[in-house]
Design a protein around this nucleic acid. Structure first.
Lengths: 167, 167
DNA sequence: GTTCTCTATGTTATGAGATAACAAGTCAAG
DNA sequence: CTTGACTTGTTATCTCATAACATAGAGAAC
C-alpha cells in the first residue's frame, strides 16, 4: 500500500462516521449471534478497515495495531484478518493483496469489488445478477462453484469527473 | 505451485497437442499482425503454459526456462509473462498468483476462470454474460470499468464425479 | 475458587511472490 | 557502421504470507 489519505468514501457522499459505526454495530451483533469471540484485536482491525473505507494491506493494518500497543508481527494482523474474512465480516481483495470491511455483514452475498485506480476507493456492489450469470456459464460446463470473486478496476464517479475536467 | 502432473485438460476430453499447437499458431499470427516481437523466451513461455494447460506460478515457469538455458532469475519469467498478458496472449489468475495461456487470442473477451481446487485445472469460460451483468451493476453506480476479472473456485466435472464415487 | 483445557495472542524465523536498477547484448533504420 | 530502441541477464531488495513454538487469558468442570 501507500501513504495516501483516505480516499473517496466509496463513490457516494454519506455520513461516514455513521455508516462505519452502524456497520460495526451490525457486525458485532452478527458475531454475538453466532457465538464468535470478537476480541479487542479483531474488533480494532474491523474498525480500522471501516474507518479507512478502502482496501488495506495486512502490513498497513499491522502498523496501526502496533502503534496502539498490539503485537507488531505479521501473524497478529493476518490472524485477525483471517478471522474477519472467515466470519464474513471482511473480504479479501485479491487484485490488491488487501482487505476491506464487509458492508453487508450477515447478509448472504458474493461481493463485487469496484476498485478505483486513481483514489484506491473500493466499493462493494451487489453481485447477485453477476453471480447468476456466472452460475449459468459454469453450470453449462458441469463445474460446481464453491467460491467466486468478482473484481473490476476502473474509475469511480468522482475521479472520472475529475479526469474529464482536467481535459 | 506444486509438483503435480498436468491435470484434467480443462474439463473436456480433447486432442490437447492439437489444441495447444493451434492456439500457439493463432497467438503467433496475432503477434505478427500487431508487430510484436515474439522472441524465443516469450514464445517458449507461452508454449510452456499451453502445454501445461493449467495456471502456473512465475517461479515454476522460471524453473523450466532455466533448465533450457534461459536466464534463471525472476525477472526473466516475469517479463515474458508480463509481455504475454499485455499482448492478451495470457492471463493472470489472481487467486492463484499464477498465469495461464489465453485460449482465445485475438478475440475481445473478459475471461472467467473456473479453477478446480482438486486437480488445479483452469478453464477459461465465456464471460460475455457475466461481464454484461457486471456492466449493468457498475453503470448504476457511475463506475467506469477498465479491467474486470472473474474467478471461481470449485470442482471440475471429473473431480466432482470422483468425489461422488468415493462416497 | 481452583484447576483444566481450549483458544487467542505474541514472537521468531523463514518461505513465496514480485520488482527496481543497471549492465550487456541484439537488431533494424538510417 | 552507427545510432537508438528494445530485450535479456544479473544483482539486490522488497512486499506479502505462513510455519512453528511460547505465553497468556477465558470459560467450563468440579
Amino acid at each position: 500500500m501507500n501513504g495516501k489519505t483516505d480516499p473517496g468514501r466509496a463513490f457516494a457522499h454519506h455520513d461516514h462516521a455513521h455508516c462505519a459505526g452502524d456497520t460495526l454495530a451490525r457486525a458485532e451483533a452478527e458475531a454475538a449471534r453466532r457465538g464468535l469471540r470478537f476480541t479487542p484485536v479483531r474488533k480494532r482491525v474491523l474498525q480500522i478497515l471501516l474507518e479507512a473505507h478502502r482496501a488495506m494491506g495486512a502490513y498497513e493494518v499491522l502498523d496501526r495495531l502496533s502503534a496502539e500497543g498490539f503485537g507488531n508481527q505479521p501473524p497478529v494482523a493476518y490472524r485477525a484478518l483471517e478471522f474477519l474474512v472467515e466470519a464474513g465480516l471482511a473480504h479479501r481483495v485479491q487484485g490488491l493483496n488487501a482487505f476491506a470491511a464487509c458492508m453487508h455483514p450477515g447478509e448472504v452475498h458474493a461481493p463485487v469489488f469496484l476498485i478505483c485506480r486513481d483514489c484506491d476507493a473500493v466499493a462493494e456492489a451487489q453481485a447477485a445478477p453477476v453471480r447468476a450469470a456466472l452460475d449459468q456459464v459454469a453450470g453449462a460446463l458441469g463445474f460446481a462453484i464453491e467460491r467466486a470473486s468478482f473484481e473490476a478496476v476502473g474509475l469511480c464517479p468522482a475521479c472520472r469527473a475529475r479526469a474529464e475536467a482536467a481535459t
